[in-house]
């Protein structure tokens, strides 16, 4: 049974029976040189930098997966009120962070 997720305070159509507290997952990623050079060219003409879009969405998935792992270890079956944060921690590297409240729903 996959863990349910929502960014609302409950899982729609279900009731929360137990709270387990905050769960979170993060990952810090840097882009590799080849991609960076290509994106540098793309940066001249503007538009979407597809390599970065992909990199960030993959990283975010990773952060979410870590958050879900933590929820699972607490015996939760849902994470509610999920939030995301992105911060540039160093040159060319970004931290992707996901957090929410682990709960049991019925």
């Amino acid at each position: 049974m996959p863990i349910l997720m929502s960014n609302t305070e409950t899982i729609p159509g279900k009731t929360i029976v137990e709270f387990y507290g905050v769960v979170s997952g993060n990952t810090v990623r840097a882009k590799h040189v080849g991609r960076d050079i290509m994106a540098g060219f793309k940066n001249l003409v503007g538009g979407e930098l597809a390599a970065y879009t992909e990199l960030l969405s993959d990283s975010r998935k990773e952060a979410v997966a870590r958050m879900l792992e933590q929820a699972e270890s607490m015996n939760a079956n849902a994470v509610v009120n999920v939030r995301f944060a992105t911060s540039s921690v160093a040159q060319g590297a970004a931290e992707l962070f996901a957090y929410g409240t682990a709960v049991r729903v019925q």
Binding site: L4, L44, G47, E48, L49, T53, L56, S57, R60
Partner: peptide, 17 residues
Amino acid sequence: VADSGLAMGSTVVSLDY
């Protein structure tokens, strides 16, 4: 509601020179 899940969409864009 029968079912729910988290939906996401993102993009990275930049301005031309």
